[in-house]
């Protein structure tokens, strides 16, 4: 028996790619308010097993078409999301909001016409600066899940404070803190707050581009809204509307205090990433993982702030 070279190559290639190629994203929208569905992302790090689908996404049925808030990590996700959303509402997608620059929320816009994709001007600027690097990072982590995904920038800058879709009005709030530009939306018809990554719920907040004082200010203004429930950027739906806000605030305050205490008492970065996490955060997914990422984000700055200068003039 002889094997042709082509058959050999095919045989070699199959096991390597069979696990990933053509894998599909499980997209299960759950109704959370009248005409609004939430797709709950995996409350885990971006990894091959979830294809990067870790962010929550909102589908809003309006009289004039379907509105999406965030779009997932890849072209494949964006396409699947559009099919699911349009099947649900029976109306074409006419608007996609991108809440902030991070790729788990925005790379999926590759599946849509940029003219219907809207984001804050700051977010578009930041995506233009960092998008290529994010794209490289996702391709490295996710491989085939990302096939065909190009960096696309939102074509529409949000400058208005609300947008009306045939009578269903969405309030658009330009905030910051999780990143330099964070969009939060309030559906006036149902009182549902869609918080983007300003809100994490039972899933530890991520801080790679965070400004903690600005984040706190943004949470203060969200807490004052007349909303009845909240759809966070990560973690389960919050039917109370205040729990995700309070929990996110609690975590970032603890984080700042814990890292400051670690620097001031002489811990190195490895030790700071190993400090005990308070019991009240025990139900929070990815807590240790995000703590260690946050150590990487904040520790050098805290050292420069708290460790005194000790150098002597060069002799």
């Amino acid at each position: 028996m002889t094997l042709t070279r082509r058959a050999m190559l095919a045989g070699l290639a199959l096991p390597a790619t069979a696990g990933m190629a053509n894998a599909t994203y499980p997209i299960h929208p759950v109704a959370v308010a009248d005409g609004i569905w939430m797709i709950h992302g995996d409350d885990a790090p971006i990894q091959s097993s979830n294809g990067g689908a870790i962010a929550n996404i909102a589908i809003i049925d309006t009289p004039v078409g379907t509105v999406l808030v965030d779009s997932g990590p890849s072209l494949r996700y964006g396409r699947a999301l559009r099919a699911v959303a349009e099947g649900l509402t029976g109306k074409p997608v006419i608007r996609v909001y991108v809440t902030h620059l991070h790729p788990d929320h925005g790379m999926g816009i590759a599946a849509f016409d940029p003219a219907i994709v809207a984001a804050l001007p700051q977010t578009i600027t930041d995506m233009a600066r960092d998008g290529r690097g994010f794209s490289d990072a996702l391709y490295r982590l996710l491989g085939d899940w990302m096939r065909g995904t190009d960096l696309v920038l939102p074509g529409r800058k949000i400058t208005e404070v609300s947008e009306d879709f045939g009578g269903r009005r969405l309030r658009l709030m330009a905030l910051a803190g999780h990143s330099a530009g964070d969009l939060a939306l309030l559906d006036e018809q149902t009182g549902l707050l869609i918080g983007g990554d300003l809100l994490f719920h039972d899933r530890a907040p991520a801080t790679p581009t965070a400004d903690l004082p600005r984040w706190r200010t943004s949470l203060d203004s969200l807490a004052k809204l007349p909303h009845r429930a909240a759809l966070p950027g990560h973690g389960p739906f919050d039917p109370t509307g205040q729990k995700a806000i309070a929990q996110t605030r609690d975590w970032i305050e603890w984080l700042e205090e814990a890292l400051t205490a670690a620097v001031r008492s002489g811990l190195d970065m490895v030790e700071a990433g190993s400090v005990p996490i308070p019991a009240r955060f025990a139900g929070m997914a990815a807590a240790r993982y995000e703590l260690q990422r946050s150590v990487s984000h904040f520790y050098p700055g805290l050292e420069a702030k708290w460790l005194p200068r000790v150098d002597m003039p060069e002799s």
């Binding site: 240790r288 993982y289 990422r293 990487s296």
Partner: peptide, 15 residues
């Protein structure tokens, strides 16, 4: 000892 993720490949903490 080191963290479970290399968040920054320019600066990876090791003890």
């Amino acid at each position: 000892l080191y963290p479970q993720v290399a968040e920054n490949q320019r600066s990876f903490p090791v003890a």
